[in-house]
Nucleic acid binder design. Structure first.
Length: 575
DNA sequence: AAGGAACGCAACCGCTTTGCC
DNA sequence: AGGCAAAGCGGTTGCGTTCCT
């Protein structure tokens, strides 16, 4: 408790004031029941029963003080401001007693902190603030007060409301909370951490367990935060949070999961005009282009694509992942963290900080491309695929495009049962030839996951978005799918011997997803496009067809290119 | 124009933390 | 060390506004 500047012992003050009140009928007798009680429930239970509906800021009819609830009036604000000017902040319970304001101290404090104190910044968050919030949340989780310390003039309540709104929007359309770069960065860093000395085993499986047991992972040192530290008067330390903590949770359950939560009716189109630059400006509202009323059909279809859930999912309702990559003390449910409540265990494992780069322009900068092979290795090394419960989704990217692709694939399967036969065709690589037999096996093996409810129904992707075909000539989807048969660059380096990837670790769900996608990739190109067209309708399907990878509105908005596809082939090349 | 749904903000609620005695 | 009071914090709710059908 902070030292009070104007402390009076509550009971003494109360006695004095009540004496005064008794001499003046215009004053409100104080009733010693509420704000001197530490327990807020007691404090406010009095409010509830004695709530003055009349809206006056003071008053009583039965000798007990009436603690008003609800919106503050300007008169009340004036009283509170005057009081603080005279007595300073703190000792909020004394406000009521000194000023006669029929508000509990808690309410006074909140009113002052959120609305009346000077230097409050009103209005919408600026893009810079939004970006900072995202960064901070990735780092801290739902530590609103801490985050507010980095946003001068902003209150924790504002930030909280903003974030919750953001969560709602993004979950409604199944978008990740964090920009892909941030997630990728976190995943990369996590991978590095796993391989770091001192971390036993360097195995994600172990690490998951550690994390889920309350182990902590490192802080992220956001450049922007570092910058702020020189400006802000108070920048708290964050001993208990980590980027990979929240972020990887976000990656798990927010970024990776594609969870279109269809409301009863998607009427609003507020997001629509905001979604255009989703990937180009991660701080904008992140609604995909098809989240438009006229595209309800798309959304409905998309909603059928996946039934997201994750291993170790503790909450069958929210289907939020608590394991993939890392688990952390932040319990993310609906994007909400509770960093103060470690799941289990008390041991904290401090790891090296992550670094996050932010461009001077305030845009997310793509982090250095990760050693994808390592990522692949970490994700893929798993003994076969472990069938997941039907409600158990894989970790995944936002995967909007892939979801469409998947859906198209599913539709195509229904029409063209022989599509798998196409996998027999040899897939020649620029540097290595992938035997189609393995691919065929993989595709067949995962045939069962073509159920839209399949946890693998929504494929993978963003993690592989860094895969770029060396074929620079591809100017259309079809060409790029053709490019699959060429060589690929992962992280700027040619990926060779990907067929040596092996399943030896239990965290190969993502790899399974890739295999899923391989089935798609194995389809004949025309069939694929037909499927997409069937899914999206002629217009959008045509748009896709006519799209230049990486440059079209569609792909750029989704932040995806068809270049995502190829890694599947590589991963399909399994023993 | 009316009804309803979604949105966003302000405030409330309850638990935790902090500091004093 | 334990109790108490105050403040802090995060989650939830209520309600006015906006938008759509």
């Amino acid at each position: 408790m902070k030292p009070s500047q104007n402390i009076c012992k509550s009971n003494d003050l109360l006695a004095v004031l009540n004496q005064l009140v008794q001499r003046d009928d215009n004053l409100v007798p104080l009733y010693d029941m509420s704000c001197s009680i530490s327990n807020d429930s007691k404090e406010l239970s009095a409010d509830s029963t004695l709530f003055d509906e009349g809206g006056s800021y003071g008053g009583s009819s039965n000798g007990a003080i009436v603690l008003k609830k609800g919106p503050w009036t300007s008169a009340e604000d004036t009283i509170l401001v005057d009081y603080v000017k005279k007595h300073g902040e703190g000792n909020w319970n004394a406000v009521q007693k000194h000023s006669g304001l029929s508000r509990c101290g808690k309410s006074c404090r909140l009113r002052w902190a959120n609305h009346l104190r000077p230097n409050l910044k009103k209005g919408a968050f600026t893009p810079e603030e939004e970006q900072l919030i995202i960064e901070l949340h990735a780092k801290m989780g739902n530590k609103w007060a801490r985050m507010a310390a980095h946003l001068p003039g902003r209150t924790d309540n504002e930030i909280k409301n903003y974030w919750n709104t953001r969560i709602k929007r993004r979950q409604r359309v199944g978008l990740p909370l964090y920009p892909p770069e941030l997630c990728l960065q976190a995943m990369q860093e996590n991978q590095q951490n796993l391989n770091a000395p001192g971390i036993p085993g360097g195995d994600t499986g172990y690490h998951d367990l550690l994390q889920s047991s309350g182990y902590q992972t490192p802080d992220v040192m956001f450049d922007s935060l570092n910058t702020n530290q020189g400006v802000l008067p108070y920048v708290p330390e964050f001993p208990d949070s980590s980027a990979s903590s929240s972020l990887m949770k976000g990656f798990n359950s927010q970024f990776c999961s594609f969870i279109p939560r269809m409301s009863r009716r998607q009427k609003r189109t507020r997001e629509s005009d905001e979604c255009v630059s989703w990937y180009s400006n991660s701080t904008s509202d992140d609604t995909p282009p098809f989240d438009r009323d006229q595209n309800d059909g798309y959304k409905n279809k998309m909603s059928q694509l996946v039934v997201p859930c994750f291993p170790y999912d503790p909450d069958p309702i929210t289907k939020k992942l608590l394991s993939f990559g890392v688990n952390h003390s932040h319990s993310i449910l609906n994007g909400n963290f509770s960093a103060s409540k470690p799941s289990t265990g008390a041991v904290k494992l401090e790891l090296p900080s992550l670094q996050h780069q932010e461009t001077s322009s305030g845009q997310w900068r793509s982090p250095p491309l990760p050693p994808v092979l390592e990522l692949v290795d970490s994700f893929i090394q798993s003994p076969k695929y472990v069938p997941l419960p039907p409600d158990c989704p894989s970790p995944r990217s936002s995967g909007l495009l892939e979801a469409l692709v998947y859906e198209a694939n599913s539709l195509g399967n229904s029409r063209n049962q022989s599509s798998e036969k196409s996998t027999n065709s040899s897939i020649s690589s620029h540097n290595n030839v992938i035997e189609s037999s393995a691919l065929k096996t993989s595709s067949a093996e995962f045939r069962g996951y073509h159920d839209p409810k399949s946890p693998l129904g929504n494929s993978t992707g963003s993690i592989l978005s860094e895969c770029t075909p060396t074929s620079a000539t591809g100017s259309s989807l079809e060409e790029n799918i053709t490019g699959i048969e060429q060589s690929w660059i992962l992280n700027g380096e040619k990926t060779e011997n990907l067929n040596q990837l092996h399943f030896s670790r239990p965290d190969a769900v993502l790899g399974s997803c890739w295999l899923e996608q391989s089935a798609f990739c194995s389809k004949e190109h025309g069939t694929v496009m037909d499927d997409i067209t069937a899914l999206l309708g002629d217009d959008l399907g045509t748009e896709v067809k006519d799209t230049t990878p990486g440059t079209s509105a569609l792909s750029s908005e989704w932040g995806l290119t068809w270049n995502n596809m190829p890694a599947v082939y590589q991963i399909s090349e399994l023993p």
